[in-house]
Amino acid sequence: MENIATPVNEEFLSNGEIEWQPLSLTLVEYPKGDLLGKFFAFTSLAPFGIGAGFVTLILFRRDLHTIAFFIGTLINEVLNIVLKHIICESRPLIRGHLYNEYGMPSSHSQFVWFFSIYVLYFFIIRLHHINNNSIISALWRIIIVGSCFTLALIVCAGRVYLHYHTTAQVVVGGIVGFVFATIWFTVVHRILTPLFPQLVSLKVCEMLMIRDTTLIPNVLWFEYTTSRQEARTRGRKLAALKPTQ
C-alpha cells in the first residue's frame, strides 16, 4: 500500500497546476532571534483576540450594544479594504506571495484605534450617568482606557518595526479608525440606542434572548447581585422542602 501511495503523493505535490498559498491572515514574520520583533509579532494578533472576545460576549451576554459595537468593527474592516483598493499603495517590504494586498491604510492600526476610541467614548458619554465616584471605579476606567490606548500604540509601532507598513500608512489608519469610531458611536448612541427597546420586543430577539442593558449602569454588579439573590432564594426553598428530622 505504501509503494502505491508514494508516487501518487509525489505527483500531486509536484503538479505545477496547483498553486499553494499560506493563510496570511494570522501569519506574522519577524527577524529570527529578535525578541522585540517576536513581541511585536504577538501583539499583531491582538485584533483577532479582540474579535474572539466580541464573539464570546455576544454568545453569552447577547446585549444589543455589544452587537452594535461588533457590527461597527466589521464595517470598519470593510471600509479599510475599500480604501486600500482605492489608494493602491504597496507595503514597504515585499514578502512574495504571502501578502498580496495593499498597505494604505494599515488595517491593524485602523482596527485598534477604532476599538480604543469607541471604548473611550463609551466610558465618557455612555456611562456618564453612573453615580459612582469612588476611587476604585475611576481607577478601573483609567486602567481599561489606558490599556486600550497602550495596546493601540504597541500594535502600530510593531507594524512599522516589522516593515508591514510605513509610518504614514499606520498614521492614516489611526486617523480613519478615529473618525469612523466617532461616526459609528454617534450612530449607535443617537439613532440605534433609542430603538433598542423596540428591537428586544421582537419575536426573533425574544427567541435568541437578545437583551438591552442600556439603563443598567453596572451590568457586572447587577448580574452578580441578581444571581446571588436568586441562589439564596432557591436555597431557602430547598431548605424548606427538606423533611425535618
Rank of each mutant, 00 (worst) to 15 (best):
E2F: 12
E2Y: 11
P7S: 09
P7A: 09
N9S: 04
N15Y: 06
W20G: 00
Q21N: 14
Q21Y: 11
Q21L: 10
P22Q: 03
P22H: 05
P22C: 07
L23W: 11
L27F: 10
L27V: 10
Y30N: 03
P31T: 02
K32Q: 13
G33M: 02
D34V: 04
L36Q: 12
S44N: 13
L45H: 13
L45V: 00
F48N: 03
F54Q: 13
V55H: 04
V55N: 04
I58V: 13
I58C: 05
F60R: 13
L64P: 00
T66F: 05
F69G: 01
F69C: 05
F70Y: 10
F70S: 15
T73Q: 10
I75T: 03
I75P: 03
N76D: 11
N76W: 06
I81L: 12
H85S: 09
I87L: 14
S90L: 07
S90W: 12
R91M: 08
P92L: 08
G96M: 14
L98H: 14
S106V: 10
S107W: 02
Q110M: 12
Q110C: 08
F111W: 06
F111C: 04
F111T: 11
V112C: 08
S116W: 06
S116L: 07
V119Y: 05
L120K: 07
F123A: 10
F123L: 09
I124D: 05
I125E: 04
I125Y: 11
L127I: 00
L127H: 03
H128Y: 02
N131F: 04
S134V: 07
I135H: 11
I136G: 00
L139A: 14
I143R: 10
S147F: 14
F149S: 02
T150C: 12
T150S: 13
I154F: 08
C156H: 00
R159T: 06
L162F: 09
H165P: 11
T166N: 07
T166W: 02
V176L: 02
V176W: 01
G177W: 02
F180K: 04
W184R: 05
T186C: 12
H189G: 00
R190L: 12
R190G: 02
I191D: 04
I191N: 07
I191W: 15
F196R: 05
V200A: 07
L208M: 14
M209Y: 07
M209A: 09
I210N: 02
R211P: 01
T213D: 15
T213E: 15
L215T: 04
V219N: 07
V219R: 05
L220H: 07
W221S: 15
E223I: 04
Y224L: 08
Y224P: 02
T226C: 08
S227F: 09
R228I: 01
A231W: 09
T233W: 07
T233A: 10
R234L: 15
